[in-house]
Nucleic acid binder design. Structure first.
Lengths: 339, 339
DNA sequence: CTGAAAGCGCTTACAG
DNA sequence: CTGAAAGCGCTTACAG
């Protein structure tokens, strides 16, 4: 494999000049640059990242930490990040903690800090004070997507208010018996998502003087299958049923819809369902939801990182407030049937 | 940040000994090792990947190339890979080509060959002869998941035969008017998936002396939305309709099912639907399908790579044949209604 | 604008 | 089992 010396030899210059010509750092005369580029091309030379990183202290490599890659929000954010990073010529090192504590630990202590990364993007990750301190001590830029982390640039939607609005939509339609489907405590280890959304839900009920019924506060780990099971069993209860359910994610709402179908419950006639996300399939399901552009959030995170690395300046910074969302009313919500 | 010299100083040994004690390469007395580990721990020392890689020629970093991260098969395979790689202490560099030609090109010429990777796993990627040659010339292990690449270790299911069996299942039920839903030519740039599955479909029809009707050969890029649109318009045609449809992926089958629902067509009464994959949601949809364990395929790819890197030996090599699949009959298939 | 040289932080024959 | 030294392939002050 051709090295920098081979290129230097062929172009008739020093290795230092090759480095400058190819990297764009430092001044090189146009003629020299052309000869160097030509020589590099002919030899199929490509710089050694490791050597370059070691010498310069910059890796052109960004770490991305996600709880899982198989849920809509995460995979979509990841796609946004990956595309933008390729455009910028950066590598992406993926850390999928898989929700497992031990993986998380090794990600932090071993991998993230191994000095191979220029910066880190975390997605919906709850960091302990200790981890925040670790990150700070390494002195590398960090941008978080979803949720709030002290002293760290964050891109997130307004979980509290969007859920409040979704709930108010149902209340305005006349619903008074409303269930909530969120994540479990256990899932919450990754982030306080559920909490913020559930808080928003309870706030809306409270404002309308409606009672929060503990037996209608369900948890399903943000999976469609889990949601299906919970709603199926809820609907099979002989007792009074809710006339509407607020789901903390579209994927859970899909499960709720399928559960209603299999229970012979008409949506929206007998049950209204709202989601939260703007999943690609929400339109096919006719789901009323709050849509957020996950891909763009990933792109913004990369731009923010590049800005922090001094590669570019942000024109307008979406991290100054909440990331914009859009309320989409479709066909899964309607006034409750008159008893 | 503590370096190897700091650790050496604290432990009262040379840097060489620290390196040997921590890496496990070469002999070190137990006492020395303990002192070194203690010192490293106290200083929070973690080896510099870049320096280590440069000196040793090994990166402990595997490149993974996927066409997209937002489809079930890819994200599930990726999760398998990511988990197994973390267990092995390797980093994962993700290349999402996003189906865009220019990204693919830069992945190959710039990134993959940048000497920072020990090996590469490609997922459902069609490589040109030229690209295969490039990979071979770099002399790094490559394992491919899905599809066949000459001279490269491959993990894949038997696309032809599984689709044949799926189709025969419908024929045995009595169906004679069967449509096929695959990917478009354009999507096929990534791999010959569709082709193999469509070939299997046509072979089964042929064996049963049934006619392949060109107007019932549909393409939808493997997305649920695309499949929905195609099947919706197929079902709205005034002319004779098929009584069954073979979908080249479960995600497309979901779209077909939703299209049938919205068209007022009963499944399986008026239309039977089969998928291919064993998507997490196939059970909820009651879909008859061939299930493949995507996560395990990712895990196997990693094991194969580690074997090629000399890190471990495979007990039993699933790449010797096709990766096992399982035929799952559920409720979306039934005999056609008697006209 | 260009080159010689030092240095990035490790690993690994080589010698003992 | 351990250390001194060379070297991995670049980048970047420093000098000219």
């Amino acid at each position: 494999m051709a090295g920098i010396k081979d290129v230097a030899l062929r172009a008739g210059v020093s290795a230092a000049t090759v480095s400058r010509a190819l990297s764009g750092n430092g001044k090189v005369s146009p003629g020299t640059r052309a000869r160097v580029q030509q020589a590099a091309e002919e030899l199929g030379y490509v710089v050694s990242f490791n050597a370059s990183s070691l010498a310069s202290g910059r890796s052109r490599n960004i770490g991305v930490v996600v709880p899982t890659v198989s849920r809509w929000f995460f995979s979509t954010v990841l796609e946004g990040i990956a595309g933008e990073l390729i455009n910028a010529g950066y590598d992406l090192t993926l850390y999928d903690t898989g929700g497992q504590e031990q993986h998380r630990a090794s990600v932090f202590s071993d991998l993230l800090l191994r000095k191979r990364l220029d910066a880190v993007i975390t997605v919906t990750l709850k960091l302990s004070d200790d981890e925040v301190r670790q990150l700070a001590s390494v002195d590398k830029p960090v941008v978080a997507i979803g949720g709030f982390i002290p002293d760290i640039a964050t891109i997130r939607v307004d979980d509290f208010n969007t859920t409040t609005l979704l709930t108010e939509h149902l209340i305005e339609l006349g619903h008074t018996r409303i269930a909530f489907l969120g994540g479990s405590e256990e899932f919450d280890v990754d982030f306080k998502l559920t909490t913020a959304r559930q808080d928003g839900f309870e706030y809306a009920l409270d404002q309308a003087n409606l009672e929060v019924r503990p037996e209608w506060l369900l948890a399903a780990n943000f999976t469609t299958e889990g949601a299906y099971r919970k709603i199926r069993s809820l609907l099979s209860m002989p007792r009074e049923r809710p006339t509407a359910v607020v789901c903390a994610s579209d994927e859970m709402a899909f499960g709720a819809l399928m559960a209603a179908r299999d229970s012979g419950i008409d949506v929206p006639g007998e049950l209204s369902v709202v989601g939260m996300d703007g999943h690609d399939l929400s339109e096919l399901f006719g789901l009323t939801t709050f849509s957020q552009d996950a891909r763009s959030q990933g792109i913004w995170a990369v731009r923010k990182i590049l800005e922090l690395l001094g590669e570019r300046a942000l024109e307008r910074d979406p991290t100054d407030g909440f990331y914009p969302t859009e309320f989409v009313v479709r066909s899964t919500t309607a006034p409750p049937a008159r008893p």
